[in-house]
């Protein structure tokens, strides 16, 4: 599974990154988590409000930090 976190280094992006890491660890799934900070890549996903969570190329959430529980649901 490929997980990308989109955001230009705002505090919320870091929070999302940590939450995703935690969710991945608790679910014990195989996943590659990367941060995407390049603005052109961000807009290529059609994301307007950061932080955004992309799982396998699909936009799962934008402009907010979902709870670890919610992220787990998205990962399943």
């Amino acid at each position: 599974m490929k997980i990308e976190i989109l955001g230009m280094g705002c505090p919320k992006c870091k929070k999302l990154y940590d939450a995703v890491k935690l969710a991945v660890k608790e679910l014990n799934v195989e996943a590659e988590v990367t941060k995407v900070e390049d603005i052109t890549k961000i807009t290529d996903y059609g994301v307007w409000s950061t932080p955004a969570l992309i799982i396998d190329g699909e936009v799962k959430s934008m402009g907010k930090v979902p709870s670890v529980e919610e992220i787990k649901q998205m990962l399943k």
Partner: peptide, 14 residues
């Protein structure tokens, strides 16, 4: 509209 200055750029482009 919910807005945070850190997403000003993607929003502007959009």
């Amino acid at each position: 509209t919910p807005f945070c200055s850190c997403s000003a750029i993607p929003l502007f482009i959009g």
